[in-house]
Design a protein around this nucleic acid. Structure first.
Lengths: 205, 205, 205, 205
DNA sequence: CATGAATGAGGCTTCATTCAT
DNA sequence: CATGAATGAAGCCTCATTCAT
């Protein structure tokens, strides 16, 4: 793992900076298609899936994948960062909503439900709690902050125990997501496991 | 991936069948060494580790590995089965102990703690809950039964909610193990996450 | 990089055809820049250097390189031809000078010294002696003629043995250049090796 | 160029040490075949030739090449070392012969003649003079020593100028070999070029 | 039985060349 | 005309698996 395998400071289109050339229209389209394909393929078959399969899924040549992501590791990192970004945006979108308790548990459940199919999404959650690489650090922080906000509001509303911290919350989200993913076929088991964790999170009466 | 690439129902020496020759003494020794090495290597580096590394760790030639486990998948399955066996034996050993509640939670905690270093152990737990392959089915059932017994006793003793089933329990064990594994460096986070789940498992006062 | 990367005689205008349009001003400028960049890059990193690197060094797009030189081989040939042209011009410039002996040896030394940094220049010299391709043939002949003239004058002045021909002279220039290039760090070794060859070229007393 | 791309301290069979396992009979045979094939292929097509072609020429699978030489660079280095070894042995074999002058010039001529087809042999000679890598250092020294001995004896016998050193001698051998290689088709040119250098090496009358 | 050499399919990556913008 | 994105063949290397020793 080279330390600098990132795709640069975020996708060109979203880095506020602007130093990166804006990328031609078709190039941007292809980059997005490759990223989406990579997300799907790696989710379905694990990170061991071949780059060639990503290319095939994206409907582009193998060279195109490597033009946008010069390394397989860079591609994996980009997928990770993208997931973190979506997660952060999702959490941020809930920040102002009413009924913080309901919002908090709904967010938790949604994360778990998504993680069920998006396999490695759970690993992403871990990143948010630990901030491993420089590339993911930025978005990891954002996720952490947004989730912390949801948690704090839910606690203030008396819906969640006061002694719960973000770290263990993220760890639990990741863990339950992974568990849910395995028990994929049985929705009831998933629901019950989630209910148990939710009960554990609520204040003791 | 053939679903049934196992080495047979467990090591030849323990299958009820009996048609399998009993294996020479040195052969048995080698099989055990390979299995132990595989467990260690796959735990440390993931299932992507090379067969050759397993052979090196075991101190045998590569040919020996393939003589005992004709496929890498067979080797992985054998490791899985072995883990399930140890897990079942561990649970079975607690069956008669006093204070079923304490025993139950201690077992849960021990599983999580082991899973922390034995990475894929968590995946094993899933197998126990789902019984994917024919190979793991037997030991999966045994684990399930042993854990069910521990759970039932704890419930009878009033230490665990009545509406918790084995399926979600195993799922939670797997999930928390995974969470613990990620938060490897932070023991406090691990403890808190575990406490939350334990609280969720206890009867509402 | 190269002092004289002009487009001059060597531009498309020399293909017997003559139907080639005279090239727009900016196009001519770009062609020269690409050629100079290619000379520098191939000299520094060998002919294995990528076309893209040439484009970068020239400050143009990759498409521009291929517009002017439809093939990498065409680009290499153009560099070769350009070097031959400069070599010929250098030799021709000395044709009328006084003290033909000194001029001859100075020219030899200069070629070797240039070849030391301009790596493949030595290969160029060979081309001059052998006229491999049709493309280099013309300038190869010119170099040969110019060097032959320098040699003849030196021989007439009694500074060089009568039995030395152009062919072996060019071969020696190429060889010593190559040797010098390897012994790059040790100027004294280079000087001594050159002195030995020079002594071999002088008439026996 | 990783510093440690060597094949180890020489081919196992020839390192006096003996710590390296002796290599099975068939393995040794294959290693030799690969090395010979590599020598031939790289000589004929340059170091850019593909490893696959070496394998084909050797009549082995691609994996076999990489088993013996874990990197293309390692393979190239091994070829280099082997050439140096043969060169050293050749020179050492002449050490005791009568008529040191004749022996010296014959050796020089033979080196050049071999270098003519063995393209990169010339580059090898350079290594002998410079000792670039640790891998070639050992044999480079041996070549240097053996050639120095031949030179010293020739000088003592009055056949070679006193002021010639090994460094420039090796440089000249490399250079003339390269020149000869280019003038491949014309034996007379080669002979004349060699004669000129020989004259330069002889004492002035 | 144990060993490790041989094998070759498959993965990642580079790069000359083409073509839409 | 200039640009740079797209393409895919080809190269290096890894690794599961087979088989002679």
């Amino acid at each position: 793992m080279t330390p600098d395998a990132s795709d640069g400071p975020g996708a060109p289109s979203e880095a506020g900076a602007g130093a990166e050339r804006p990328l031609r229209a078709d190039a941007r389209r292809n980059r997005a298609r490759v990223l989406a394909a990579a997300d799907a393929v790696f989710a379905a078959k694990g990170t061991g899936a071949s780059t060639e399969e990503v290319a095939r899924e994206a409907g582009v040549g193998i060279g195109t994948v490597f033009r946008h992501f010069p390394t397989k590791e860079a591609l994996l990192t980009a997928v990770l960062v993208d997931r973190l970004r979506r997660l952060a945006e999702d959490a941020e979108a809930q920040a102002g909503a009413a009924d913080p308790g309901a919002v908090f548990f709904a967010f938790f459940a949604r994360v778990v439900e998504q993680g069920r199919t998006k396999n490695a999404f759970t690993d992403v959650l871990h990143e948010a709690g630990v901030d491993v690489t420089a590339a993911t650090a930025e978005y990891g922080k954002r996720v952490r902050a947004a989730v912390a906000e949801l948690l704090a509001r839910a606690q203030r509303a008396g819906a969640v125990r006061e002694d719960v911290g973000v770290a263990e919350l993220l760890a639990l989200m990741a863990g339950v997501s992974r568990a849910a993913e395995r028990a994929a076929s049985d929705g009831e088991v998933r629901a019950k496991a989630l209910a148990i964790v939710f009960d554990g999170l609520r204040p003791r009466p």
